[in-house]
Design a protein around this nucleic acid. Structure first.
Length: 881
RNA sequence: GGGCGGUUAGCUCAGCGGUAGAGCACUUGCUCGACACGCAAGGGGUCACUGGUUCAAUCCCAGUACCGCCCA
């Protein structure tokens, strides 16, 4: 016996353990099935499951389960990412609390701690993923810093270096003075703020009382100015070009140069140039061969160097600004201040202001690598779904700047480059190899830096399955079928996988990229800890069950639109899970669990044929939707069918049929059809709601220990399972019941009262149907009897279904005036409709130009409406007479 | 500033060249032995605005307004 209530938490663990132990998640490289591959976006080891993961992994799991059932050899490759900066932040915070800096404990100890912490934290996220019921091939779980992947990273670095696509250069980079490392452009957030624009007068050399006024938001950088630029066509400055100004405070002489970078419309039209502390100025500096003076150290303090006036040495950039402004004021060189809106660069993780900083770093030539990556999408070898995300992809790959890949951190892949004392570089997969290159006895020192975390992630589609070795897995599962991810990492990750995959594998990493929505809160706000509006998927699972959470996310995952997740939705879908449970209970109580030797093509009676027909349709709908990544449509089709068709109609119809012992054959067919249908429903819904379906299956259908729904075959139906006649009959039956129910409710007939039904003008076929489904109609519409008449009695309720008129002779218990009003209302509605159709049909242009089927359709609509109106009129007359 | 998306029932959202849909909420009535996390019946919409294309526009096109995102 099934429990009265469905209790998710009790069964979820049991089934998950069983699945995992049975090894059903594993791919089989030796199988002759077609492979289907999804590479899981590796969550950070620091991470814990958030609602975005829940959506991402639910959708992947649905695809994976669906394809497994359809007979593919599925590899869902799981793993985690080492998340270099994030781990540093966690560990350094822990150290800080003990008052220790990372330099004090040293690189070796720090890394030991990092690994310890990874062991501890890495399992958190994967065990949380298990709670979602996801079924990746856990036995193949990888980590971006495990031995194999580390080897792949070294190999990739060396190969790219040898191809000239990785190089070391001194460049202006985004420096995070808090984290003490370079960060990439993507990790810098442009934050809008209210700022100030200071106008400063620079005295022109050799002139008395002549100045050029420059405007700047960062006066402190003037210590590093090496020019003043004006527009070459600006008449105000034409004859100043080539002269010099005396840089206030430092009193260096710097040239006035002509460059189109300065905008004559803005401010005074003259702009100070600080090549070592501004990206635009850097470019100007390069063009004019200007000196690049770095005035800050790695803490963003002013350097302690001779060319800096003494009072500024060693002070912070903020303090330097104050001092400069005071001094300029004293010198009477401050021409004015205005308040403006501007943007400042802020570190994504640290939150501090990023300093453009001159250092030597490693770069990857992504502008070159991006070309084939862009082309692959333009050629359609990889497609984005929804398509509009291709724009985001193109805007990134088509405008690539070199990617700075070195980081001044310890946790990560240490760069495989060695230096000798003369500064020569040797890049190799290991020190031995480097030593060979350098020659015996040459003293070598390894580069201290590690690679950007995304470098190893970019290799994920092939490094996880064996690259650089030639493994069977690599040959079999590469390229992947689809990548499922959020739009926020198209730039960080997707584009880089494309670049590296095309370079190393000479093929795209996946055929489809499905971009899913962002999950927001009920009010459309982005969830964040600081706002306190995060919904913890584990709490939701506790509260509603895993199936409900999964189904909700799936049902709301419409393409191209964010998900606003509200409690009510979860409740609604939790109710749906319960509904399925109860429907199964009904089947059990009515002995509808065995369908041995039942062939759906053998069904004879209309309700059974109709149900089979509808199952066939919903199956096709689910397939079509999933094949096109229309998850919400698949979920809604399933929902409507199970609740609206199976429960509300079929099971209700089955009740009187199952009580009717007179016709044994019919009863048996109903039992078998119900049982068969329930099993189809469980199978079709298993990818979405694996637990409740597996549990019911285990209760009713499980043949032996190794029989599980998760490994069941996806249904395939004969083309013959299309029953249009049965569908027509059942639609008629639904209309009859519906009309009577509606009439009763409108006229306030007590729900408990059993009343008589008279039918006028029924065709032979209709009469036959009334006879055949008499018990069903009587029960569902709460009728005492059904009989046919030629003339309706006076003052009865009437309604029209098809050609026949349904009459409820209950004049004594209803209000005749109310009935007249009701009829008039219905007639008015139908008149409006007729008017609309007539207008159309009266329009020659419509009749001549519209496709013929549209015209005939309108004509038959009109005929039907007219017929119905006539019948309603006579009903009204009858009432009045 | 450039680009992209959105605007449909009270709310959250589907849909789509020819009858406007769902869930929740709301109203009314129900102990019809699966289910009140339920059953049944309802009410509720100038499909943001202005033009254009079309026999026909909520849907296609252009523009406007507002909201959101991405990139400078």
């Amino acid at each position: 016996m099934m429990d009265k209530n469905f209790n998710p938490s009790e069964i979820e663990e049991k089934h998950y353990r069983d699945w995992e132990q049975a090894g059903v998640f594993s791919c089989d490289p030796n199988s002759d099935k077609t492979p289907y591959t999804i590479m899981m976006p590796p969550p950070n080891v620091t991470g814990s499951l958030h609602i975005g993961h829940a959506l991402n992994h639910t959708l992947q799991d649905i695809l994976v389960r669906y394809h497994r059932m359809r007979g593919y050899d599925v590899l869902w490759q799981p793993g985690t990412d080492h998340a270099s900066i994030a781990v540093h932040m966690v560990l350094e915070k822990q150290l800080n609390e003990q008052g220790i800096s990372r330099d004090e404990i040293g690189r070796k100890n720090f890394l030991e701690k990092a690994w310890e912490w990874k062991e501890y934290s890495g399992n958190t996220i994967t065990s949380q993923l298990r709670r979602l019921g996801t079924t990746p091939d856990w036995k193949r779980e990888r980590f971006t810093m495990d031995e194999g992947l580390s080897k792949a990273v070294l190999k990739a670095f060396v190969k790219l270096y040898e191809a000239g696509l990785i190089y070391r250069a001194e460049r202006l980079v985004n420096w995070d003075p808090e984290r003490q490392t370079v960060i990439s452009d993507l990790e810098v957030i442009q934050k809008e703020q209210k700022g100030k624009m200071w106008h400063i007068r620079y005295p022109v050399e050799g002139e008395v009382e002549q100045f050029i006024t420059v405007a700047t938001t960062r006066p402190e950088t003037m210590l590093g100015d090496t020019a003043v630029a004006v527009h070459p066509d600006d008449p105000r400055y034409k004859d100043m070009i080539g002269k010099s100004v005396i840089l206030p405070i430092t009193e260096r002489l710097i040239p006035i140069i002509a460059d189109e970078y300065s905008d004559p419309e803005k401010g005074s039209g003259a702009v100070k140039i600080t090549p070592a502390h501004d990206f635009n100025d850097f470019e100007v500096g390069k063009r004019h061969n200007l000196q690049m003076i770095s005035i800050m150290d790695e803490h963003a303090n002013i350097v302690d160097k001779e060319f800096i006036p003494e009072s500024y040495r060693g002070v912070s950039r903020e303090k330097a600004r104050e001092l400069i402004l005071t001094e300029l004021e004293e010198l009477d060189l401050l021409a004015g201040v205005e308040t403006i809106k501007n943007t400042i660069p802020v570190g994504e993780r640290s939150g501090v202001v990023i300093e453009p900083f001159m250092t030597k770093q490693w770069f990857c030539d992504t502008p070159t690598l991006a070309k084939p990556a862009a082309q692959a999408v333009r050629d359609g070898r990889t497609r984005f779904i929804p398509k509009q995300y291709e724009n985001m992809y193109f805007s990134w790959v088509d405008n690539q700047l070199p990617w700075c890949i070195s980081r001044q951190l310890w946790w990560g892949h240490q760069i495989p480059a060695w230096y000798d004392n003369d500064g020569n570089i040797y890049v190799a997969e290991n020190e031995e190899e480097a030593q060979k290159q350098a020659g015996k006895g040459v003293e070598l020192r390894r580069d201290e830096d590690v690679l950007d975390t995304w470098f190893s992630s970019a290799l994920w589609p092939f490094s996880t399955i064996g690259w650089p070795e030639d493994t069977t897995e690599l040959a079999r599962y590469y390229p992947g079928d689809v990548l499922v991810t959020g739009f926020d990492i198209i730039t960080f990750w997707v584009s880089r996988m494309m670049m590296f995959s095309l370079f190393f594998m000479d093929d795209v990493p996946f055929k489809d990229v499905y971009i899913h929505a962002l999950v927001r809160d009920a009010r459309g706000q982005k969830m964040s800890k600081s706002k306190g509006n995060v919904m913890d998927p584990l709490e939701l699972i506790e509260k509603y069950g895993t199936d409900a959470v999964r189904f909700t996310l799936c049902a709301m995952a419409a393409q191209g639109r964010d998900i606003r997740l509200a409690d009510e939705r979860l409740q609604g879908y939790r109710n749906f899970i319960t509904k399925i449970w109860n429907a199964a209970k009904y089947c059990e109580m009515n002995d509808c669990l065995s369908h041995k030797d039942f062939d759906p093509a053998s069904a004879k009676s209309a309700p059974n044929q109709w149900l089979i027909h509808e199952i066939n349709i919903v199956k096709n709908e689910i397939e079509r939707s999933l094949d096109n990544y229309r998850f919400n449509e698949a979920a809604n089709a399933a929902y409507q069918f199970v609740w609206g068709t199976f429960c509300d109609w079929y099971l209700e119809i089955s009740k009187p049929l199952l009580q009717d012992e007179a016709d044994k054959i019919d009863t048996i067919e109903v039992r078998k059809t119900t049982s068969w249908a329930l099993k189809q429903i469980l199978t079709l819904l298993n990818p979405f709601i694996p637990y409740v379906t597996e549990e019911i299956y285990a209760n009713f259908y499980k043949k032996d220990e190794n029989d599980r729904l998760i490994t069941a075959k996806w249904p395939k139906y004969e083309n013959s399972l299309v029953y249009s006649d049965a569908k027509e009959t059942m639609e008629w039956l639904k209309s009859v019941v519906g009309e009577i129910r509606s009439l009763r409710a409108d006229m306030n007939v007590p729900a408990g009262a059993k009343i008589e039904l008279l039918v006028k003008g029924a065709s032979e076929r209709t009469k036959k149907s009334f006879k055949e489904y008499e018990e069903v109609i009587k029960r569902m519409a709460r009728l005492s009897s059904i009989s046919h008449v030629d003339t309706p009695p006076k003052g009865a309720l009437q309604t029209i279904v098809g050609e026949s008129c349904l009459i409820l002779p209950i004049a004594d218990i209803i209000d005749l005036e109310a009935e007249k009003a009701r009829l008039n209302k219905v007639i008015r509605k139908i008149d409006d409709e007729i008017k609309k159709i007539e207008a159309k049909l009266g329009n020659d242009k419509f009749v001549n130009n519209a496709p013929e089927e549209v015209v005939t359709q309108q004509k038959s609509r009109k005929a039907e409406a007219l017929d119905k109106r006539n019948k309603l009129y006579s009903a009204l007359e009858q009432l009045s007479s």
